[in-house]
Design a protein around this nucleic acid. Structure first.
Lengths: 263, 263
DNA sequence: CGCTTAATTGACTCGTCTCAACAAAAGTGG
DNA sequence: CCACTTTTGTTGAGACGAGTCAATTAAGCG
């Protein structure tokens, strides 16, 4: 298997689904390969049809295109279908600070529910497609479908937990631990999506990684070099191969959600 | 007005309610002074009664007592009624990392919904009382009461937004900005609860503040001294008086949720 | 009123940032 | 398709903010 086949961007495609169907077409939730990760968890096919009715699949976004901008009114939350999306805020001086990287099956825009306005901007890191879930409809439907309500609450709770983990990471760990945690976390999420957690392609730039982890680009670059020298991973630009997942997770401490740290 | 009357711990009491009623008694949501901040937002009195039926008010916790521990199974989420609560994780080496300070009207335990297990421990920072909201009941009721569902989703969304703001703070701001943001944020929340945002008592130790902000205790201490020297605030141990809220918020940059930064 | 814990202050160290130069990709247009 | 520009990533040298260690003072608390 070439490392390329783990590229996040080709996730859905490399599963053998046609691009039109998987990434931009009208695949129903029922037929979506992500339905055990996304909103549909636990729904029967009748409920899935009802869910489908409030979902719109739009043409794929190209790298750099906006999904929405900070300040836009909330009309929908979005489920990533293929590719990957970053969310970020812009400080008053114009530089952006990344708040999240979102992989297929993950929901974007949940932070907007409180105020009715997206607090962050969201852009595609690569060619990506999303399902647009009308928010009004989602609120309505989750009053009617217990399983949908539960899953929505679960996904929001998971986001809270993940963000808190990031706070612990940013507040408590040195640079090396932060990068180790991010890589372990991405590896785990890539794994959950059916791909090898040992080799994948990072869709985000070093800049984005630094911004997300609160580090200078140069530091991120040096860290990759160091981790490679220590035999923890191989890295060649965006292509990453994890050689010692356990040691990597130990470096990350408690800060990889989901999995408990080894030892 | 003495600064003491702004003590977080005496919030409810100083509103003139009897301790038994306000802090440990059986005040219904209807009669609770926090009902415009907490779960009851937007509910009519019939629905409030239904909500009351799944809520238990327990004896107040004393300083340091646990509300729950990381790893406990989720049975309820808690609304702070009076006092203040901190949530934190323990690293493998035993030192704790604070993930949140919670004031009256705020919900605790939302991070447990995803897994059914509290991911953090929660302890009282001072004598505090809470409302225990049975989680099963809450799920049930929010299927029946639209307003309750909306408020629950709003509160979870707000937490997501707040945690993301903390990530930006911890990843992007120097020590001074972090403390300025925390103080501005607490001031705003104290203000929302009907007290002067200019003078209040911090219920958490310097250690807790440092842990929450990712700083050493010594740094926190020095920062307080410096901010006082610069005329931004007066501080005497836990007692804080904000002298220049605008400059303080400007130091904090975009990292005070709710309020936009001045200038 | 002593004892323990919390907060403050100082001196020194170290990790990460900044600035700067360079290399390698990736677009862009003829 | 190649030469060009622009963007992105890597590496080095020096500066500085915040951590650590240690000592002192001030509060809580029994």
């Amino acid at each position: 298997m070439t490392a390329d086949s783990f590229a996040v961007h080709s996730m859905t495609v490399s599963r053998g689904e046609r691009y039109g169907a998987a990434c931009g077409g009208n695949v129903a939730c029922q037929d979506c390969s992500l339905h055990q990760l996304c909103l549909p968890v636990g729904l029967d096919s009748e409920d899935l049809e009802r869910l489908d009715r409030i979902i719109r699949r739009r043409r794929p976004l190209r790298r750099g295109e906006y999904l929405f901008r900070a300040g836009d009114p909330l009309r929908a939350v979005y489920a990533v279908r293929s590719g990957s999306i970053k969310t970020y805020t812009c400080s008053s001086e114009g530089d952006e600070h990344v708040t999240g990287f979102h992989l297929p099956g993950e929901l974007i825009g949940l932070g907007a529910i409180a105020t009715g306005v997206y607090p962050r901007s969201a852009r595609a890191l690569e060619t990506s497609s999303v399902c647009e879930v009308a928010y009004e409809g989602l609120e309505d439907l989750s009053m009617k479908i217990r399983g949908l309500q539960r899953q929505l609450l679960r996904l929001m709770s998971r986001e809270i937990h993940h963000d808190e983990t990031m706070m612990v990471l940013l507040g408590g760990m040195a640079a090396e631990g932060r990068l180790a945690a991010l890589l372990s976390n991405i590896a785990a999420r890539v794994g959950e999506r059916g791909f090898s957690p040992h080799a994948f392609r990072l869709s985000m730039s070093r800049n984005d990684i630094g911004s997300y982890l609160g580090l200078a680009v140069e530091t991120v670059s040096r860290l990759f070099t160091r981790l490679q020298a220590e035999g923890l991973l191989n890295v060649q630009r965006k292509q990453v191969m994890i050689r010692d997942p356990d040691r990597l997770r130990r470096l990350a401490g408690v800060c990889v959600d989901g999995l408990p740290p080894p030892r």
